[in-house]
Write a protein that binds this DNA or RNA. Structure first.
Lengths: 146, 146
DNA sequence: GAGGCAATGACAGCATGCTGACATTAGCCA
DNA sequence: TGGCTAATGTCAGCATGCTGTCATTGCCTC
């Protein structure tokens, strides 16, 4: 029945708006002691997970955000000594964003908070449900990201 | 295995951030011709769904946002003639927010865009997956909302 | 009825997203 | 090689979240 899926979907969309706000609050609380915010948490995570090195527009593509928004965050984090801009052998103007020693230290501490948080919040959730949800979310992302 | 659920969950969280941005963009595109934005879409939806009438803090509680953020939106929408503040018999200062005739007209047109959008985007998704996802999202909301 | 605590309105400041615009550089194709 | 188009840096403006603060009103309890 279309109508019931329609209602389910609209409920899901509103719930996702709500959950997004709560997750940002969680991220802010978790990273507060480290001098981070949820926005910087996302950026530092993207850089830490990249193997080859990322430029500012590259981070923006990974996070699905505008390059201008990411640029503002990275500029602030470079100012704070967490990130550094390194010459990019492949591009004269578009520098690579890297973690400083301080940035790596923070990322390591971050994981000590983040990992238990992730484990704790999935204790009572079966893997199959997580997988179904993740698959559906990825499908929706692919659908809307054109 | 904890570790695999941990990774699934962190992947899910990042994906939800991404999807949230895409959904806001969808909402903006869908409501653009109506002179709305995704933020106003949420507010008008909350009011339209309420039977008893809502105050500004009441809308904020429904949406899980700060009352100040909602107040700014409703003030602008009253300015635009979409919403109106009505006396609240139960409270001298906290007025009720209602749809004007123009607001109801817009909400009806909105549904003509929103419903096909919801149906179209769930065509290839089984109901069971939608239900599983919605249930999981609600569980996470309950977990984080204290 | 009086007092105290919670809820609300109002204003301010800030963080984080977005878009637009413009100059410069890279990269590709004729 | 020359030139066109896309990608990038940069600055600006704006929308939408948040928090903090303070005065006022509601409500509950004593």
């Amino acid at each position: 029945m279309h109508s019931s899926k329609r209602v389910l979907f609209l409920d899901l969309v509103l719930s996702l708006f709500r959950l997004n706000g709560l997750l940002i609050a969680e991220g802010d609380a978790m990273t507060e002691q480290l001098g981070l915010t949820s926005a910087r948490w996302k950026v530092i995570g993207a850089i830490a997970l990249s193997t080859a090195g990322l430029t500012v527009p590259g981070i923006a593509r990974v996070l699905g955000q505008s390059r201008q928004a990411v640029q503002r965050i990275t500029d602030a984090m470079v100012q704070d000594g967490v990130l550094a801009y390194m010459p990019n052998p492949k591009h004269k103007r578009s520098v690579l964003v890297t973690l400083t020693d301080e940035g790596m230290r923070i990322y390591n501490i971050l994981r000590e908070v983040q990992d238990p948080w992730a484990i704790e919040n999935t204790e009572d959730i079966p893997s199959e449900e997580l997988e179904t949800t993740l698959r559906l979310v990825h499908r929706l992302i692919k659908k809307f990201d054109k």
